[in-house]
Structure formats: structure tokens, C-alpha cells
Design a protein around this nucleic acid. Structure first.
Lengths: 199, 199
DNA sequence: TTGACTTATGTCAGTGACTGACATAAACTC
DNA sequence: GAGTTTATGTCAGTCACTGACATAAGTCAA
């Protein structure tokens, strides 16, 4: 039950989840988002549609099944920044660390970007659920670091929101360029604008 | 066909739309968002469900049927700011002008805030469609004012995003206080943090 | 006024995302 | 090996949303 011994049951559950994500990505890539049904994905992974919805709360969610990995990178990096560093620089470093995922998972992230550009429902999900969650968590971390209440003081939310605006700008440029540019460099350029805001 | 003579057809269409929005607001207020179906709303307005979807693209959309009014206020105010004013101050003034809607339409906007707090689907729609649209338009206006390309330079998007983060913070505080505080003052306080960012 | 047209709406049938309830077999525990 | 937990299958259902076609009201020109 620890991290070292997931047990057969947990391993099978994880395998089913991974299967669903892999087949969903393949089908979305081949046909686009709208032309794939949740039943298609379930059948490709050889499970029932009901099982699909036990693993993912929506058709969009299966496309962002690794969002918690990115969130963890974001928060871990932020937490590990030195205390004497400015909060803005810590935020930049945290988002930058999260962006490293794009370099090691090029096809997965580029598919997300492409589908978000082509299908409004995908973009809406990414914005309203995935990024919103990241932003909310980062806001809480910033507020804790600053020693203030994020419900009373808008600054943590503003900073987190600005950081993800820079992140989105980088994704857009990267996606528009066919995913050929080095994402990390685009992200660095975008995030640099944070330090000189509102420059 | 001009603004002065909408014609009977246009007037009836607008009346149907207004009816749908009014009955939807009443039903949502009484029962909550999930417990009201689009058929309920249509029947309350004495039209078919198909007509509902000819006026609104989703069940969420009917709750934000006045979003284009707020967008127009935002963009008009921004366009009318003096050229010598700093862009940040113009953005603050534009969002502040938009926020004036809350003071003249208290019940409508408070219902939106309450439902967004209680129903994730409402919050997601507000974030991914309504605010995203405003943010996108404001980004374009900022970029035009700065004379730069918003696809190449992330600063307009960052500024617009930061402004709406301040806006959301104000709405949250207002909503948490039961809508009794003066929204304009809360918004002023939030927006002040923009000028001193990242202070 | 009449006749041609445009368009807002109704009706109908369908698709597909998502959910609750119940049963089962595998995995886990002792 | 017995008892418990849980991931999955099956089934039936709700509801948001859409395309196709018909109709009646509104519009406009002769």
C-alpha cells in the first residue's frame, strides 16, 4: 500500500487508466476531438464506457490526465525556492519548471495544444479546470509565502494569473510554430515580461 | 432596421430572449442551477426547448445573457481614455467602468456570483467563455494601443489577465460578503494592486 | 391590397455525455 | 480458507444539444 508496493489491484487500475489515456490520445489525434466518443475510447481500451467515467470525469479530462504531474512540479519547485528570492522570481522558476514537461512529452502536449486550438470545448476545459486549478494552488502558495490571506489581498491571485497568462502566450506561440521551437525558450521569453511588468 | 426602428419582428425576438433570461434567473434562484432543465426554462417562457437553443448556445449562456453589454462598456471606456494616460491606468479605468454594472444590476450579478460559487459548471463557463472573451478583446485593444503584436508580445495578455484576476478577487470578496458591500469600492481596492504590481 | 420573401418558431427524431443501482469476480486481509 | 474490499460490467435512465422540415408571422415591393 506504500509507494513501493502498489499491489496488483492498484497496478491494474493504473494500467486501465493509462490505456484509456493512450487510446484516447491516439483517437483524438487521428479523428479530432468531436469525432471520437467516450464509447470509442472505452472500446479501444477494451473496457466498458462506465469504467471510462470511473477513471475520468469527462471526455476532456482524459486528455489532461497528467495535469496533476505538472501541478506537483509547479508547487514543488515553488516550495523549494530560497526564501530570500523575490516572490516573482520564485513564480517564474516554478512555472518554468512546470514547462519542462513540454520538452519531455512533446507529442502529448502538442496534441493538447492543437486540440485546444481547434475545439472550443477543449480550450474551455483547459482554461476553466486545468489552469484554474494550477492558478488556485499557486495563489495559495504565494499567499502563504507572503504571509497574507489570499481572500483579502488580491496580489497573490494577480501574480499567479499573470504568470499563467505568460504561460498561455508561450503555448500559443509554440503551437502556432508547429511545436518545432524549443518551448522552454519561448516560456523564458514570456516569463521575462513578468519581471518588468507592466513595462 | 436601424437602431431607431427595430421592427415588430426584432422586438418580438428580443422579448422572447428577455423572457427566457428572466425566467431562467428566477428558476435558478429558486431551485439552483442543476435542478432546472432547459425545458423548464423554455416552458416557463412559453416557447419550445428548440427556441431556447436558438437564442442561447447552452444552459449556462442564458445566465450571462448581458455579457456583451459589459464587454461593450469595457472596450468603450478603454478606447475613450486619453492617449497620454498610462496603459495600466486605462485598463484600471476600463475594468472599473465595467464593474459599474454590478451597482445597477445587483440581483442579476449577485445571482451569477452565487451560482458560480455553488455550481462548478457555472464557474467554468464564466471563466472559460465570458471572462476569456473579455480578456481576449481587452488584450487586442491593449496591443493596438501599444502598437505591438499580441501574438508575439505577451505583455498585453499579461496585463489583461492580471486585471481580470483583480476583478475576480473583487467579485469573490463581494460575494462572500453577501453582496452587501459596495462592489465599486472592492473593485477599486483590487485594481489598486495592479498599479503597484508586483509590490 | 396582393404576392413574394424572409425569418422566428414548433415539432420530431436523434446523438452522446454522464449517472445511479445492482451484480460479480478479482484482489486483499487475517 | 473465510470474510472484506473494490474495480469492473451491465442496464436503464436523464438531459443537453442538434439537424431537418413545416408553418405562420413579419417584411417589402409592385
Amino acid at each position: 500500500m506504500s509507494d513501493f508496493e502498489p499491489g496488483r489491484r492498484q497496478r491494474k487500475k493504473q494500467a486501465t487508466r493509462d490505456d484509456l489515456m493512450d487510446h484516447a490520445a491516439r483517437l483524438f489525434d487521428e479523428r479530432g476531438f468531436d469525432a471520437v466518443t467516450t464509447t470509442d475510447i472505452a472500446e479501444a481500451a477494451d473496457v466498458s464506457q462506465r469504467t471510462f467515467f470511473r477513471h475520468f470525469s469527462s471526455k476532456e479530462a482524459v486528455l489532461y490526465g497528467h495535469a496533476d504531474v505538472l501541478r506537483r512540479r509547479l508547487l514543488d519547485e515553488f516550495a523549494n525556492r530560497p526564501d530570500q528570492e523575490s516572490v516573482v522570481d520564485s513564480v517564474i522558476a516554478a512555472v518554468r519548471a512546470m514547462g519542462g514537461y513540454y520538452e519531455t512529452h512533446h507529442d502529448e502536449t502538442f496534441l493538447q495544444a492543437r486540440l485546444a486550438a481547434d475545439f472550443p470545448a477543449v480550450a474551455a476545459y483547459a482554461r476553466a479546470y486545468v489552469q484554474n486549478d494550477w492558478e488556485h494552488e499557486l495563489t495559495a502558495a504565494i499567499a502563504a509565502r507572503m504571509g497574507i490571506d489570499p481572500l483579502a489581498d488580491p496580489r497573490p491571485e494577480i501574480l499567479a494569473s499573470a504568470a499563467f497568462a505568460a504561460y498561455r502566450a508561450a503555448v500559443r506561440r509554440w503551437s502556432a510554430g508547429g511545436g518545432r521551437a524549443a518551448f522552454g525558450e519561448l516560456l523564458d521569453e514570456s516569463l521575462a515580461a513578468l519581471a518588468t511588468f507592466p513595462g
